[in-house]
Write a protein that binds this DNA or RNA. Structure first.
Lengths: 112, 112
DNA sequence: TGACTATATAACCATCAGGGAATATAGTCA
DNA sequence: TGACTATATTCCCTGATGGTTATATAGTCA
């Protein structure tokens, strides 16, 4: 897991792939959905309630998250149950949160 | 580093903060800049060359990255030298890349 | 001071993505 | 089959954002 010092320019295609996946996480509504799914799998209506987003909106965002492989879609009778399918979501969010905490700490230092 | 099973709803403000930082990483141009800075610190013109982006464009993206605390700005005479200031960028990108690799592997399985 | 270079900023345009309303689709049950 | 429910999709509007061009700012050096 050591970091290479080498210059690896990463093809534009690769950059686009990575960017697209980060972009999906760069939306409060989708983060709210993921965050809500972290505690347990839920169907669309449950997610609508827990996030206070509209049904159409939730459905649209879930489709994007599913396409990207972040969440899993499972039909249960009339319901569609979603769950987090990519564990890295947890790690990415944890990492980002601690990064934010660090930055806020620095900002605080700069003021005090 | 164990994951809590608790439901932590995260305030909208917190979601916004996290989303904003992910969003910055969700742009190929900014990723290209960060990627180029991973090998060594560089001034604006060097980054313009290594990324083939316009000077104004590079400058604008760098400002955003600096505001977020991802990169550090240092004046060196007439130049402005930028460097990565938040190590989590490395980890975030590594994590994302392996997540992508995993997904691509799954997609491959689904076809074969 | 004046010319030159590096970088930042402003103004503008075009594109894209999110949100809402309405509608379509599909599964369930009587 | 027909009514009902859950979910997906379409259409439309609007705000945000990236890119470009032109310009401003600031540092350097003769």
């Amino acid at each position: 897991m050591a970091r290479k010092k080498e210059n690896k320019p990463l093809s534009p295609a690769a950059l686009g792939l990575v960017a697209a996946r980060f972009k999906l996480l760069g939306e409060p509504a989708r983060l709210a959905l993921l965050n809500s799914l972290m505690s347990r799998e839920q169907n669309v209506n449950e997610l609508v309630e827990s996030t206070s987003l509209s049904q159409a909106n939730v459905s649209k965002h879930l489709s994007q998250l599913a396409d990207a492989g972040y969440v899993n879609r499972r039909k249960d009778g009339l319901f569609t149950v979603y769950s987090i399918s990519d564990d890295s979501v947890f790690q990415l969010c944890d990492l980002m949160c601690s990064s934010i905490a660090k930055k806020l700490g620095q900002d605080l230092q700069a003021i005090a």
